[in-house]
Amino acid sequence: MNIKDELLKISANVVIDEKKANYKIIIEDPVKIFDAASSLKNLGFDHVVSVTGVDYPDKVEVIWHVSSYSVEDLKGINLALTLPVKKPERVNQNEAQGNFASKKPPVTVPSLVKIWPSAIFNEREAFEMFGIIFEGHPDLRYLLLPEEFYETWPMRKDFTYNRVNLLKYLRCLLNE
């Protein structure tokens, strides 16, 4: 089985680095991600190692790192299934002020938990850290962060930990 040919069937955009055993497959269209993931699972990539985002000024790249336990040839491969999503424009500037960290609109991608159940906690973490809403996730709640970080998406590059705003936020909580 030639892994490169199989991957090229799924998407034309495949980056392979044989030396580092890094395989990257980029899907541009969020609609196609579900089909691509199903074909990968049929190939033998049966579990998700990590789900994460990479934040850029204009987009968020969602990466599912998948690997295989059942197919001997694929056990040495770390495949990154990448989906770049454009960030929506910030809607209301004024509303954002006064909060602990300015509110930023989240991005939405389809959840792959139905295909890979091992992504369940990973997708929850990517959701709270990057503001990626996984549509179709059965249990999308905050996992690691405490309340004052809600909707701040701390792993995005424009996150600022502003003490003055934090105090304001805590005062708001007390008044409530």
């Binding site: 049966d46 579990h47 998700v48 190692v49 336990y69 890979w116 159940p117 091992s118 992504a119």
Partner: peptide
């Protein structure tokens, strides 16, 4: 934990 579950749960 069965083998199939161990694989699918990662």
């Amino acid at each position: 934990l069965k083998k199939e579950d161990a694989i699918s749960l990662g």
